[in-house]
Amino acid sequence: MVLKAGGEARDRALIRAIQNGLPLTRRPYARIGLELGMSEAEVIERIRRLQAAGAIKRFGVVVNHRALGFRANGMVVWDIPDDRVDAAARRLADMDCVTLCYRRPRRPPRWNYNLFTMVHGRDERTVRERIERMAREADLEDVPREVLFSRRCFKQRGARYA
């Protein structure tokens, strides 16, 4: 089941109601239901279905790495031959320091990297050391790569659903 934007109105109302977070009360689903005119059971069932359908990837805490003192965030981009990229990506995704791992298209000549991994650390040196270790352990020392550290964050929010 895939939920389209024009999909069920009650799902959309629920998605909107919880996008900024779950109420910190003993019965949060009942509280949401009160606002939406749904029973507690209906709220729970709809969230369960949204999770099963993949519309909700994950339900829980979203950590602010920066506030935790992980001040360096390096986007590591790799140019891995197409026949090696998926296997290498799976190995990288298994490593503890990797927080995102996506394959994206190359846009030659300006952009020749096809795999993106995010690595957090307390400082840039730690992040660079981790990346060296990643390359070694995933057999990617021969592959071109770059690290793009973030300098400033101008906007950070989840996607909005109206």
């Binding site: 998605i15 779950l22 910190l24 979203v62 602010n64 996607a159």
Partner: peptide, 9 residues
């Protein structure tokens, strides 16, 4: 420390 507590869509 937590930016949110709820769903990731």
């Amino acid at each position: 420390v937590l930016s949110r507590f709820g769903p990731l869509y």
